[in-house]
Design a protein around this nucleic acid. Sequence first.
DNA 1: TTACTTAGTTTCAATTTGCAACTATATATT
DNA 2: AATATATAGTTGCAAATTGAAACTAAGTAA
Lengths: 222, 222
Amino acid sequence: MTSPIIQTIDVVLLTIKNDKLHVALVKRETPPFQGYDALPGGYVHEQEDNDCLDSALRVLKTKTGIRPPYLEQLETFSGKFRDPRGWSVSVVYFALVSLDVIEAANNPQVSLVDIDDLKDLPFDHLNIIKTTVNRIRNKAQYSSLPCFLAGETFTLPTLQKIYEICLGDTLNKVSFRRKIAEMDVIEEIAGALSRQGASRPAKIYKLKPYYLEKLKTLESGL
Amino acid sequence: MTSPIIQTIDVVLLTIKNDKLHVALVKRETPPFQGYDALPGGYVHEQEDNDCLDSALRVLKTKTGIRPPYLEQLETFSGKFRDPRGWSVSVVYFALVSLDVIEAANNPQVSLVDIDDLKDLPFDHLNIIKTTVNRIRNKAQYSSLPCFLAGETFTLPTLQKIYEICLGDTLNKVSFRRKIAEMDVIEEIAGALSRQGASRPAKIYKLKPYYLEKLKTLESGL
DNA sequence: TTACTTAGTTTCAATTTGCAACTATATATT
DNA sequence: AATATATAGTTGCAAATTGAAACTAAGTAA
């Protein structure tokens, strides 16, 4: 009999820091790659978990202390060579949260790395992260996905900036607002204003409760 | 020690027959659900397969005799309850082929079922097929995916019909042709004409070799 | 040679998008 | 108190895209 296939899950947790996408890495406490930073991941626990989504939520909670409102399956990475222990299958999920969710968890094991500054990572984690960024860039074109990177409340200029960071390009202000209005996923918080510097304050919005953990897509995009 | 997780792959092979999407099912030769029609699937073979994509190609070849030019990972379905044998993970792929590829394989174990006539299926296969159809409907809006359902050569009216079947809606002839031209994935076969009934024959096209197994996407869609 | 049917193109109106300039509203400065 | 200035948000319009209808083209059948 051959050794069984290694069945794991990994989570790509992304946030925006200093106007750039960052990924959350955790220091590995066990071999292989002990001591190295890698994606939070772990084994499926047949007893505790009803499915791999459960596993992903459990592992993310355990390793980072975070319970993300939005978690989506990315893809499954498998093969003979991606894990030195042998033939492995990793079902990968990705989550988007605002920076303050990560800071609130305040876990010293967690480090945030700019996705453009990633060095070599254990396993195929670099490839997994790049696949995730591509997926996000793609979905940012026609969905409310980037909204999950905003905090509980936000202004339209802030949200536009978040979309621009995801897309890697600037957007037209009028078109952006038309599309966000068309998506109909946010609502104004009456009376609330942002009052930043010495300029006109922006209105403050929040996600409509229904869309706090759901995606909305557009017919045409952007 | 707990029983190991069951690691399988399944393939959703779709084609168009009588102007409707059909899925290829094969009769199961072993328990569970022996004798029932289900998606072609099987175990990952650690020795033969370098990754799950290999497993999918091998299983599809073994069970249907088909080697599809286009195969894409759909999603992974997992959990305690989807397989009566226990906690299982199935990495699911989908493939699109023209009807004559299936007919050429001529395998009596394979049956083609209209996706709107599906009865209850073993495991969560009904759900898997519905997820696939949604994915295809989605990708048909902005990519060359439906082209893989056409045979080696085809006319533009035929290709439009294929897109309409995928999308479940009619398309504007002029817009469709503009978009296909913009995608730049097909080329005319000089001089070849379709000559069907008593009417003007249509020009015949084929996929550009580069796109025989690759997807092309549009910025805006349709 | 005329009718018929489907292929493919042209034209133009309707819709959508994107830029630039405008107005609005706060703080900071004089 | 008046004015400057910075960013928020809106308006108007030109450019680009899309979609419907009408047209021309090219074959077979009568």
